[in-house]
């Protein structure tokens, strides 16, 4: 009798713990007082932000507001710009990614990126997805094959290309190319996926497919997406950040931003009065 009484209580405690954990989860990405300059031009003017794991965060704002620059800080893609200079801290999983000792290549395996224009390599579909594994020095052909298949399945491209894996990635349609690029990113199993206007070069049907995909991917990955499309931000994101002239004007739950923003600038932008 005693045992059967105790068991349910135990379960409740465990469940409680899970709920507690998910609420208090440490941020996946923590940004504190980040400033960025290109030569004398200050592109980012002191931003703080915390991004929770397994959420979709949308960055919105007019062109040139610094949202893409900010996004590219997370996988250090700005490092290639000669005039780039940065101050402040960005922690991913509590590790400062701008410390000297950080291995940038390791960081980028953890933080994948999908670009504005689909940019498959001029190689076969298979090689496109396998590339990330190849550069890690993985030679196990069976493992690579399985990973390619599972990655293509995750982006719902497998059925469309499984008979043509040796065809050039460039022979696919724009929407398929972008899904291929996402699959390529998934193949290295990152925990964060950065997307820089991933649907701006795609037609509405392909866009819808990518949005569905983002919704699915959220279960396993933390997603940060830059978009110019307000409806897209409101459809797919949990949190929205509004940038203007290099500053973070407002950052809140997407629902709040779109129904009850606290700043006038935000409201003006999302209602289309400027930007």
């Amino acid at each position: 009798m005693e045992i059967s009484m105790e068991k349910p209580i135990d379960e409740v405690i465990v469940l409680d713990n899970i709920i507690d954990l998910s609420l208090k989860k440490t941020p996946k990405i923590a940004v504190s007082n980040v400033k960025v300059w290109y030569d004398d031009f200050q592109a980012i003017k002191g931003i703080d932000m915390e991004i929770k794991p397994n959420t979709v965060t949308a960055f919105i704002g007019p062109s040139g507001c610094g949202k893409s620059t900010f996004l590219r800080l997370f996988n250090r893609m700005n490092d290639y710009v000669d005039s780039f200079k940065m101050e402040g801290k960005i922690k991913i999983d509590s590790k400062n990614i701008y410390k000297k000792k950080i291995n940038v290549e390791e960081l980028r395996k953890e933080v994948g990126m999908v670009f504005q224009k689909p940019n498959p390599f001029p190689k076969s579909i298979f090689e496109n997805v396998a590339y990330g594994l190849k550069i890690q020095g993985i030679k196990d052909k069976k493992f690579i094959k399985e990973r390619v298949e599972s990655s293509l399945k995750q982006v719902a491209l497998w059925n469309e290309v499984k008979d043509n894996l040796n065809k050039s990635g460039l022979a696919l349609s724009g929407g398929q190319q972008q899904r291929l690029c996402i699959a390529r990113t998934l193949a290295v199993e990152p925990s964060i996926i950065l997307m820089d206007e991933p649907t701006s070069a795609l037609d509405p049907i392909s866009t819808a497919k990518i949005e569905e995909l983002i919704f699915e991917l959220k279960k396993k990955y933390t997603i940060v997406i830059v978009t110019h499309n307000m409806q897209q931000a409101s459809r797919i994101s949990d949190y929205t950040a509004f940038f203007y002239l290099g500053a973070l004007i407002e950052f809140d739950k997407t629902k709040t931003i779109f129904t009850n923003p606290s700043k006038e600038q935000t409201e003006n932008y999302i209602t289309g009065r400027f930007g």
Binding site: E106, R108, I135
Partner: peptide, 15 residues
């Protein structure tokens, strides 16, 4: 060579 190709390679962790 389009810079997008380089970007894609670097973003996947290539040296």
């Amino acid at each position: 060579v389009p810079s997008s190709i380089k970007d894609a390679s670097y973003a996947l962790g290539a040296s």
